[in-house]
């Protein structure tokens, strides 16, 4: 099997870290503002984007084939959908 070294530049890794920190701050920030049901979807959406960034960059998924990338990213968003579905209950009680 092919075994290439996939190395990201430190600058790229730093930018990704920065984006992750900014997204975390946004998550904390919007949790303090009451936007109704939108709070949940925003939090889940941001969490999904963060997880995808970690998978793509830190875990080198970016260098894999399209099938693997689609498979793993789908699971992240699917998990968000599963958690989101609990709000069919909580949001309408």
């Amino acid at each position: 099997m092919e075994n290439k070294d996939h190395i990201f530049a430190y600058k790229t890794l730093f930018y990704v870290l920065l984006v992750l920190l900014i997204l975390t701050s946004i998550t904390v920030g919007i949790s303090l503002v009451d936007m109704g049901k939108l709070n949940v979807w925003l939090a889940l959406g941001i969490a999904s984007v963060k997880a995808s960034l970690v998978l793509m960059v830190f875990m080198h998924l970016k260098f894999e084939g399209r099938v693997l990338i689609i498979s793993f990213l789908s699971t992240i968003f699917f998990l968000a959908i599963m958690i989101g579905f609990t709000f069919w209950d909580i949001g309408f009680r």
């Binding site: 069919w88 949001g91 309408f92």
Partner: peptide, 21 residues
């Protein structure tokens, strides 16, 4: 993976959830 709450119709969850699941 998206049908789990059909075990919970009598649990007191919302009617909307009952309908969707």
């Amino acid at each position: 993976s998206l049908v789990w709450a059909h075990h919970m119709y009598t649990s007191g969850m919302s009617d909307t959830a009952v309908f969707v699941f």
